[in-house]
Design a protein around this nucleic acid. Structure first.
Lengths: 200, 200
DNA sequence: GTCTATAAGCCGATAGAC
DNA sequence: GTCTATCGGCTTATAGAC
């Protein structure tokens, strides 16, 4: 524990988060993480057995905050399922316009470590995306959508597709396009009842 | 030029293609590429100014074959636009079931080099995806679809999303889900005429 | 729990011979 | 155009003191 009051382990994860997200896993040395956290490398290796374990801790720290943000954007207004999901995409597009934005940390890590399928960080990334998909599926099922599971997967594909495409082209408008596609797919799947006029 | 008859530069690119695609850019040393190509590192640096230039050559070599494959899958039958595009996704799912499959080389490179936005390899990747999007757009426009540009972007998002998601979960069925979503979006955008029955 | 110091090897890139 | 040899620096991880 350091003078600052923030536990050492936590400060190391914060430093790792900033560096790994910005420069990629293999682009960041353990030295650099230790230096940014203000500890020596030996201290870092006291708290984490290896770099791989540190990478896993980096992604685990992004899991809940990320999901909470999506849920918050969704709930900001009760203007119907298509609009609520589309708002997630619109907010992501806004995030993507910040100069430091570099896509989805989970997807970028899985792309970088594609030759290590059992890596602990990849398992954490997969679990994170499964949680998001499950939340969508339950939300859709509660709205009376019959093909809730399939629709949730389609929305996930649009979301992760927009992460990849926007990162490549540096053009956040693709996220708005993805949001419109999501809107259309959800609208087409909604039951005709429930106050939502569709093909009346 | 080596005994084999295949020019040295070409053999280096072939070696780079195999290694970079399998293990990622930063996971492969110039030594390893030279060894696999059967040349010394000095010879490699005679043909390529730097590792970055070699990475760009690796992706440039994948551009045309990749686009040709998509066009071939699309044209294998003339069973209507939705089915033809969906067949691209179905064939990709089949590819993704091969044990050596590791996603899209262009997207993985852009994810790994996200901190180097102007890198020559990223420019080549962006140009590749733009060519694919343009081909979709022209195909849709020729079929009389009004919002051809928007629809092409949506299909691209589903395609690149399935690359990312399948790589993370190692579950190619997501590609079939993406294909079904593409099918639905194209069908909804088709003009009512032209022999394709829709909501008659 | 945190430090200094270092092992042992790999990295991209280059010098100079032929 | 291809070779042998090597530079200087960076890599993950560890030894041992306090």
């Amino acid at each position: 524990m350091a003078r600052s009051g923030i536990p050492t382990r936590e400060r190391i994860i914060t430093a790792a988060n900033s560096l790994f997200y910005n420069d990629g896993i293999r682009g960041v040395s353990v030295d650099a993480v230790a230096a940014k956290a203000g500890v020596t490398k030996r201290t870092l290796y006291y708290h984490f057995r290896s770099k791989d374990e540190l990478v896993a801790a980096y992604l685990a720290g992004r899991d809940q905050p990320n999901l909470a943000l999506f849920r918050q954007w969704f709930s900001e207004a009760d203007d119907g399922l298509p609009a609520q999901v589309e708002r997630i995409f619109r907010n992501l597009a806004r995030s993507a316009r910040h100069p430091k934005w570099k896509g989805c940390g989970f997807l970028r890590t899985s792309a970088e470590l594609a030759n290590l399928p059992g890596h602990p960080a990849i398992k954490i990334g997969a679990a994170h995306k499964k949680k998001f998909e499950a939340w969508l599926r339950e939300t859709f099922a509660e709205a009376g959508i019959a093909q809730a599971a399939q629709l949730a997967r389609q929305i996930l594909l649009l979301l992760d597709g927009s992460f990849a495409v926007v990162l490549l082209h540096r053009d956040p408008s693709y996220m708005e396009t993805a949001g419109e596609a999501a809107h259309a797919l959800i609208e087409a799947a909604l039951p005709v009842q429930a106050g939502v006029r569709r093909k009346r």
